[in-house]
């Protein structure tokens, strides 16, 4: 025989290969489970109302997350206020208004490049532009500076998801509007935007959840690690959940490590709530369009 297919040997390799792919996938998910379990085991004993409502302290058992939680909420709100209109507006412009094709292409290329820029580089931009040059306006290393930096960081995500949401709106709807003599903005604001809004919101929330977990950019603009108060205005110095966690992790004392784990639990709960909202919105969105 010229051919010797050796099927048994080949099937053995097939099974080994299939097992390898399952093991790899299982391993990745196992690491996720171990990570979650580790954090829960380390941190849950420390979770208490006292932990959530206390300000930072030099004694681990007295230290709490209040200042960081407050700072993160400030950041979340300000970032949303800045990034949402700009991101959605830019998405609208590119998808509905832009006529010059080279400009759209330039922005498209630009956005995909921005998405690949490390967040710490955004931090350097924020440090120089928002914290230094615009100090009279922003108050320097303030919660506003942090929010501006994070807004730039998540802008590409919001723009891209806005455009995707707008693309799902059927073109017939636009034509119907134009056929009635409406201007483009009248059509977009009255018909297109309301339909696309749930999709845009989903993308925005996911982008903001990235901002909430962001650490490096905030450290670079000089967010302080020891802030024993909750910011009361946008130009106040601040700390945030991930920065507080980083601060606690880098202390040598075991007690602070426990605090870090507890802080991680709070951060993950916040993230989960945001993601759940996004998923809920997405499901409703899919229902209305079909």
């Amino acid at each position: 025989m010229l051919f010797n297919p050796q099927l048994e040997r080949r099937y053995l390799w097939d099974n080994l290969f299939a097992s390898a792919t399952w093991i790899a996938t299982g391993l990745a998910i196992l690491v996720l489970l171990v990570l979650l379990a580790d954090v829960l085991l380390d941190g849950s004993p420390r979770l208490s109302w006292q932990f959530i409502t206390s300000l930072p302290s030099r004694k681990p058992e007295l230290a709490g997350i209040a200042a960081a939680l407050g700072g993160s909420i400030w950041l979340l709100v300000l970032t949303a206020l800045i990034a949402f209109p700009i991101g959605v507006g830019a998405g609208l412009y590119l998808e509905e208004f832009s006529i010059e094709s080279w400009w759209s292409r330039l922005i498209e290329i630009n956005i995909s490049n921005l998405a690949g820029v490390p967040s710490i580089i955004y931090g350097l931009l924020g440090l120089q532009v928002f914290a230094r040059w615009m100090q009279p306006l922003t108050g320097g290393r303030s919660v506003l500076t942090g929010a501006l930096t994070l807004a730039l960081l998540v802008l590409p995500v919001i723009i891209v998801s806005t455009r995707e949401a707008l693309r799902t709106v059927p073109d017939g709807l636009r034509q119907a509007g134009f056929a009635l003599g409406a201007t483009r903005w009248q059509v977009v604001s009255a018909h297109v935007l309301p339909l696309a809004l749930p999709g845009i919101m989903t993308g925005t929330i996911l982008a903001l959840s990235r901002a909430i977990g962001e650490t490096a950019a905030l450290i670079t603009i000089g967010a302080l690690t020891f802030v024993p108060f909750i910011p009361n205005n946008p130009t106040s110095p601040f700390t945030a959940l991930p920065i507080q966690i980083y601060n606690w992790v880098s202390r040598p004392q075991q007690g602070f490590h426990v605090n870090a784990a507890a802080g991680i639990i709070i951060l993950m709960v916040v993230l989960m709530m945001m993601n759940a909202t996004a998923i809920l919105l997405r499901n409703r969105f899919q229902k209305t369009l079909t």
Partner: peptide, 21 residues
């Protein structure tokens, strides 16, 4: 979705995991 969760874990959490676990 499980892999997507892995992608969504903040890096400071991974740092904690690397150093302390």
């Amino acid at each position: 979705p499980a892999l997507e969760v892995l992608a969504g874990v903040p890096t400071v959490v991974y740092g904690y995991f690397a150093l302390l676990f």
